[in-house]
């Protein structure tokens, strides 16, 4: 009786979990499938036939490739700055003791707990009041993206740092390493996977953002804004190629990162 209960317990939960995972992945399958679709008409979004045209004529829809380029540029720049600032903050929060830590924690959590529409409208209100209404564009999008990525970077790097044994750093200090050496030879390599994960998260948040960007973009068009506009005008199948490509690249980065860190573990320890 007990064994039967265990069996059901083990496999039922696992089966439900896999069904939920299927729900989460179904749209991804559709995106990959649609990237090979040859639609019968301009406004139909059904699978009518197989073609490679969408892959070979990727830049054919007006503004598609320029919007992807803009999103990539902003994503890379915003990720760079947000990861740098966020990592410094995470080190301060975990490794240093100062007054107002609790307040700093709330301060960092707040942007994650604010609806995007509120953050987007706040920034727009600021830019308009500062007389920048006509100058919305690349830099206002960049500023906004660094802002909302920052908290996610802090939280991700903090989690990694908190799980790291501080005695390793003390050991380095005991062996006459100065603070600079301790940081680059001990702390940084250990926390690096956390920083990489934070950068990856931050890039995908930036590349994907629509609500905040849409309010602060002025005349610029990012990839999500292109997709939004396409929804009313007829959807080019090429957007699915972009989706598939992004998915494949990110997956490779994650797999290589995991594999690489496993190998390092085996050789080092």
């Amino acid at each position: 009786m007990r064994a039967a209960g265990d069996w059901v317990g083990r496999h039922l939960i696992l089966m439900i979990g896999m069904l939920v995972l299927l729900y989460m992945l179904t749209p991804v399958f559709v995106v990959v499938l649609m990237s090979f679709n040859q639609p019968a008409g301009r406004n139909t979004y059904t699978f009518d036939g197989f073609t490679l045209d969408n892959w070979t004529n990727l830049c054919e829809p007006y503004q598609l490739c320029s919007s992807v380029r803009l999103s990539l540029e902003i994503g890379l720049l915003a990720t760079l700055l947000a990861t740098l600032l966020g990592t410094l903050m995470a080190f301060a929060m975990v490794r240093h003791r100062f007054r107002g830590r609790a307040a700093a924690n709330v301060f960092i959590f707040l942007p994650m707990a604010t609806p995007e529409i509120v953050m987007g409208s706040s920034l727009l209100a600021l830019f308009v009041n500062a007389g920048l209404a006509g100058k919305l564009g690349f830099w206002t999008i960049f500023v906004a993206h660094v802002m909302f990525c920052l908290s996610f970077v802090v939280v991700t790097v903090k989690a990694r740092l908190a799980g790291m044994d501080p005695r390793l750093e003390q050991a380095a200090a005991d062996l006459y390493a100065n603070e600079w050496q301790t940081f680059w030879r001990v702390s940084f390599p250990l926390v690096f996977p956390g920083i990489l994960a934070a950068a990856l998260l931050s890039f995908s948040l930036s590349f994907d953002d629509f609500i905040i960007t849409n309010l602060n973009a002025g005349q610029q068009v990012t990839f999500p804004m292109f997709v939004w506009g396409a929804n009313t005008k007829g959807i080019p199948m090429q957007i699915n190629v972009i989706g598939t490509l992004m998915f494949a690249i990110a997956l490779i980065v994650v797999v290589v990162g995991e594999f690489g860190s496993r190998r390092r573990d085996r050789t080092r320890v």
């Binding site: 995908s204 999500p224 997709v227 939004w228 992004m246």
Partner: peptide, 8 residues
């Protein structure tokens, strides 16, 4: 799924 654009 995060890595495939959310709007797509």
């Amino acid at each position: 799924p995060f890595f495939t654009s959310f709007l797509v």
